[in-house]
Write a protein that binds this DNA or RNA. Structure first.
Length: 620
DNA sequence: ATCTAAAAG
C-alpha cells in the first residue's frame, strides 16, 4: 500500500467518520453517503476503502457525471497518494483511458461504466463501485442505479456499492435499496442570506440589472454571480451592465469587470472566470446554469437568481423535443444560493417572492430520465440480455411514465432495432454498440448497406458534436478578420452542409486556424474528428466499404448524396415531415399527422415525392 | 424573419 506523501490528504470532515464508514460498508452491500460540498467525499471515500484493503480483490470504480470532474478528481487523488496518473490511480473518459493493470482507484464517467458493463455485465474487475454525485440524477446514473440493484444480488459476497449525494434525498435512495444505511457527512459551507422580491418581475433582465447595480453601489467587496437562462440574455445583460456601470458617478464605487459564462463560450474565454478579480475591482459573472454545478467560480459572495432555467423536454406523444424556459426547483434555487457561500457568508437575491419558492417551485428538478427519449436507454438495456427482464417493469429510482417507455419501444420497432415481440434484432445489437442515438446508428447501418458509409460516418460525427453554424450577415464583415464562406450544402440540406464542412476541414489538414477563419468552434470540430475515428473503429468489423474520408480525389464529377439522404430517412423514419403544397409549412409523416414548423434547419429533399424534413425539434 | 442549456457514449 502506498504511504501518504508529505503533502498528504488534507483533514476533511469525512476523515472523522472513517471508522463509521468502514463499519457500514463492511456490514452492508450498499450504503448511501450524504456529503455536502467540501466534505471531501469525492476524493476521500475511495482512498479510505483502498487503505482498508478493499482493493486487494479488485479495483474501486468512482463514477462522475462529467468528464472534467473525473479527470480533475483523479489527479488530486493521485497527488495525495504521491503516484502518477495511470498507476495506482487513473481515469477513463471517452477517447482517453489513463489506467493500467496497476490501477486500483479508477475515476470514470458514468457513461464509460455503462459501456464497460456492455461487454462485462458483472463488472468483475471492481470490488467497490461508488456512484458519486447521484443527486444530479443524470440519465446514466439512473440507469446505473437500476443495474446496481440487480448486480448486488448476483455479487452479494464480493461487491460493495456506495451512492453519494449532496442533498437530503438519502431516504429515497435508501428505500430503493431496501432500507440501506444512510451516513451524513457535514460539509464546510458558509451561511447565505436570502432576499426575495415582492413580485415576479415582468422583465427579469431589467430586474437583475437593477439588483446588480444596487449591490455594486451599496455592498462590500465580493464578486456577483448572475444566473440567466441563455446566451442571448447573457449577452444583453453583459452589455447593459457595462453601460450602466459606465454611467455611474466617477469614484462613487470600485471598478467593475463583467464576464459572460456559458457552455458554448470558447475555452479560453471560459477560463477567464478562474482568474481572481484585480485589486479594487468587483467582478460580475453573468452565467447560465453551467455555474450551478459544472463550473465553480471562486470569490462569489452575491448571487442574483432569476428563478428560471432552459430545459429540454421530450414529449412522447409527439416524439419530439422542445427547449423551454421553466421555473427552477427548490433544490436548484438552493444550489444557486449556495454558490455565494463558498469562501465566506454570502447573500442571494431571488427575483421571485418567497411564496412562489414555497408553493410553486417543485421540490426537486424532474430527473432527466423523465424528460428524455428513452429509445437509447431501452435499446441499451435490451442489449444487456438481462434474464427475466421486462423493460416496462425495470426497477428505476423514479420510473419514467409508461407512455414514455412505450414510445421508446415503438421508436425502436420503427427502425428495426426490436421485433414485434420486443426482442432485440441483429440490427439492434449493432446499433447498441455504437455510441450514438438510435436514429443515427440506424442511419449508419443503412448507409453501410447502401454504400455510403464514409459519408454517413462524417455526418453522424459532426451531428454528435452539435456544431452551431452562426449566421453572419454581410455587415458583420467589418473589422480586419473576415469570416470565410462555408460550404452551403449545394441545396441538399444541412446534413450535406455539415458533411462538406468536415471534408473541407480535412482538406485543410485539420488546421485549427481553418476553423477560426470560418467561425467554427475548434473544440467542436476536433470532437467530431475523435467521434468519427471511434465510430469507424467500431463499425470496421461490419463495414462493406471504405470508412476513411474520400474527399481528396479531386472533383471530377458532382458528389453523390442521394444514398446518404436515403440512409438518413431510414434512420430518422420516425421523425419525417413533408412540405405542404401551396402552404408555407410542413406536416409530420406517420401514424399521427401534426403541423410543424422547422426551427432546426435539417432540411432534406427526399424520395422523389417533394420536400421532406428530418426534425429534431419543433414548435407548435 | 428565427434561433440552442448542459452533459454524456
Amino acid at each position: 500500500m502506498p504511504s501518504p506523501s508529505p503533502s498528504g490528504p488534507p483533514v476533511l470532515p469525512i476523515s472523522e467518520h472513517e471508522d463509521e464508514i468502514v463499519a457500514a460498508v463492511e456490514a452492508n452491500p450498499v450504503i448511501v453517503v450524504i456529503g455536502e460540498t467540501g466534505s471531501g467525499k469525492s476524493t476521500q471515500l475511495s482512498q479510505i476503502l483502498h487503505r482498508r484493503g478493499y482493493t486487494r480483490r479488485g479495483a474501486i470504480a468512482v463514477t462522475q457525471p462529467r468528464r472534467v470532474a473525473a479527470v480533475s478528481v483523479s489527479r488530486r487523488v493521485a497527488q495525495e497518494l504521491g503516484v502518477s496518473i495511470g498507476e495506482e490511480v487513473g481515469y477513463a473518459i471517452r477517447f482517453e483511458d489513463r489506467t493500467s493493470e496497476k490501477t486500483k482507484i479508477k475515476y470514470l464517467t458514468d457513461g464509460v461504466l455503462l459501456r464497460e458493463s456492455l461487454s462485462n455485465p458483472e463488472l468483475k474487475q471492481y470490488s467497490v463501485i461508488i456512484l458519486d454525485e447521484a443527486h444530479e440524477r443524470s440519465l446514466n446514473t439512473d440507469i446505473l442505479l437500476g443495474l446496481m440493484k440487480r448486480l448486488i444480488k448476483h455479487r452479494a459476497s464480493d461487491l460493495k456499492v456506495l451512492i453519494t449525494s449532496a442533498t437530503l434525498d438519502g431516504l429515497k435512495v435508501s428505500n430503493f435499496f431496501s432500507g440501506c444505511p444512510v451516513l451524513n457527512i457535514p460539509g464546510t459551507i458558509f451561511p447565505v442570506e436570502k432576499f426575495y422580491s415582492t413580485d415576479r418581475p415582468t422583465n427579469y433582465i431589467e430586474s437583475s440589472l437593477r439588483t446588480a447595480i444596487d449591490i455594486h453601489v451599496k455592498e462590500a467587496p465580493g464578486d456577483v454571480l448572475i444566473f440567466m437562462t441563455g446566451k442571448d440574455d447573457i449577452d444583453k445583460m453583459v452589455s447593459k451592465l457595462e453601460e450602466r456601470i459606465q454611467n455611474l458617478e466617477e469614484g462613487s464605487c470600485m471598478d467593475a469587470l463583467v464576464l459572460p459564462l456559458h457552455g458554448s463560450l470558447p475555452p479560453e474565454q471560459q477560463v477567464r472566470v478562474f482568474s481572481p478579480a484585480p485589486p479594487n475591482c468587483r467582478r460580475f459573472i453573468v452565467a447560465t446554469n453551467v455555474a450551478e454545478t459544472s463550473l465553480t467560480v471562486d470569490g462569489v459572495v452575491f448571487v442574483v437568481d432569476c428563478g428560471y432555467v432552459k430545459q429540454r423536454q421530450y414529449n412522447p406523444s409527439t416524439g419530439m423535443y422542445s427547449l423551454d424556459v421553466v421555473e427552477i426547483s427548490r433544490v436548484q434555487a438552493d444550489q444557486r444560493a449556495g454558490r455565494a457561500g463558498r469562501t465566506r457568508p454570502g447573500k442571494c437575491y431571488r427575483l421571485y417572492p418567497s411564496s412562489i419558492y414555497q408553493k410553486e417551485f417543485l421540490e426537486a428538478t424532474v430527473p432527466e430520465i423523465q424528460r428524455t427519449s428513452l429509445a437509447g436507454s431501452v435499446l441499451y438495456l435490451k442489449s444487456l440480455n438481462l434474464p427475466d427482464i421486462d423493460i416496462l417493469k425495470f426497477d428505476f429510482l423514479d420510473p419514467p411514465s409508461r407512455e414514455s417507455l412505450e414510445d421508446a419501444l415503438r421508436q425502436l420497432y420503427l427502425i428495426d432495432a426490436i421485433d414485434e415481440s420486443g426482442q432485440i434484432t441483429d440490427v439492434g445489437r449493432l446499433m447498441a454498440e455504437l455510441p450514438l442515438d438510435p436514429s443515427l446508428s440506424r442511419t449508419l447501418i443503412e448507409a453501410n448497406e447502401l454504400g455510403c458509409l464514409s459519408q454517413a460516418l462524417t455526418v453522424a460525427a459532426v451531428l454528435s458534436a452539435e456544431i452551431t453554424l452562426r449566421q453572419t450577415r454581410s455587415k458583420d464583415m467589418e473589422g480586419k478578420r473576415k469570416r470565410q464562406e462555408l460550404p452551403d450544402g449545394s441545396g441538399w440540406g444541412d446534413h450535406v452542409q455539415l458533411l462538406q464542412i468536415f471534408e473541407s476541414w480535412d482538406q485543410a489538414d485539420y488546421d485549427p486556424r481553418w476553423c477560426s477563419d470560418h467561425d467554427l468552434q475548434v473544440r467542436g470540430m476536433k470532437f467530431s474528428k475523435d467521434v468519427r475515428n471511434q465510430l469507424s473503429q467500431i463499425i470496421q468489423k461490419i463495414a462493406k466499404g471504405p470508412t476513411d474520408l474520400q474527399a481528396r480525389r479531386g472533383r471530377k464529377s458532382d458528389p453523390e448524396y442521394r444514398k446518404l439522404r436515403r440512409a438518413l430517412c431510414v434512420g430518422y423514419g420516425n421523425q419525417l415531415a413533408e412540405r405542404m403544397i401551396h402552404h408555407n409549412g410542413y406536416h409530420t409523416v406517420g401514424y399521427r399527422t401534426q403541423l410543424v414548423q422547422c426551427i432546426h434547419l435539417l432540411y432534406l429533399k427526399v424520395m422523389n415525392t417533394g420536400n421532406c424534413l428530418c426534425m429534431s425539434s419543433t414548435t407548435n
